[in-house]
């Protein structure tokens, strides 16, 4: 019994270890760890993925945001100082990693916000947008915002800046020519892509067709294969 007791005392139970960094609340938080001053490379992990962030609670995400924000400020400070001193900033990819993490975190928060609003109100809670025509009769996405309600004829700023809308023969002529220009550009691009694919098939007849199809979805690969342009300079077997 005693032996069992001794064993029990010395057993290390599997416990999830929590790593806690010492919290420093002063201006030195704007600088990297002293061990990383003047080194050539700082080894770091990857950025946070969307799938991982989806598993976290709202309060965890809130905490993580501030950690990432402080990290970004620290990296920007260090980068600025290195640029001032004409030194290479070690591992600049850290900034990209932090920014990617922040983007992913915001995407997850937005997802949750949308789901909540759809459930509660039937609308997604995003900033409303609508497609309108601009002064030249071309379509563009107009992002709506809240404003004090003034009748249009009394809104002097709107009348001065945004009320003009082209119309009549001028607009019709402009749109006709503009559309023709876009059409010709698209047609040229299509032909150019087709020719390029033919050239690729000529040089690399055994290339990965799936990848080719993925990169040039508008090109008819079968047609390109049969084209005269894709035939190599050899006698066909």
């Amino acid at each position: 019994m005693k032996a069992f007791h001794i064993i029990k005392e010395h057993i290390i139970l599997p416990r999830r270890s929590i790593s806690v960094t010492a919290q420093r609340n002063d201006l030195m938080e704007f600088f990297d760890d002293k061990n990383n001053w003047g080194v050539q490379e700082v080894k770091t992990g990857r950025s946070w993925k969307v799938e991982e962030l989806r598993l976290k609670s709202n309060s965890d995400l809130h905490k993580l945001w501030y950690i990432l924000l402080k990290e970004k400020n620290m990296l920007l400070t260090m980068e600025h100082e290195c640029n001032e001193k004409m030194i290479i900033f070690p591992s600049p990819e850290r900034i990209d990693k932090v920014e990617e993490s922040m983007e992913n975190l915001e995407a997850v928060v937005r997802e949750r916000n949308k789901a909540y609003h759809l459930l509660e109100t039937g609308e997604n809670g995003e900033r409303p947008e609508k497609i309108t025509n601009n002064a030249f009769g071309l379509q563009h996405v107009y992002k709506e915002s809240e404003y004090a309600i003034i009748p249009k004829h009394m809104n002097e700023e709107w009348l001065r800046k945004d009320s003009y809308r082209a119309s009549g023969k001028d607009l019709r002529d402009f749109l006709l020519k503009y559309k023709e220009k876009v059409f010709v550009e698209n047609k040229k691009k299509k032909q150019r892509d087709f020719n390029h694919v033919c050239g690729l098939l000529k040089r690399f007849p055994n290339m990965d067709m799936e990848a080719l199809k993925e990169q040039y979805p508008d090109v008819d690969i079968e047609k390109a294969k049969n084209s005269k342009r894709s035939r190599g300079h050899f006698v066909p077997a």
Binding site: L27, F30, F31, L69, K72, N73, T77, H80, E81, L105
Partner: peptide
């Protein structure tokens, strides 16, 4: 404001 996205860097 829950997720402020302003940056701030300390410069010499």
């Amino acid at each position: 404001i829950f997720l402020p996205n302003f940056w701030l860097k300390l410069i010499r």
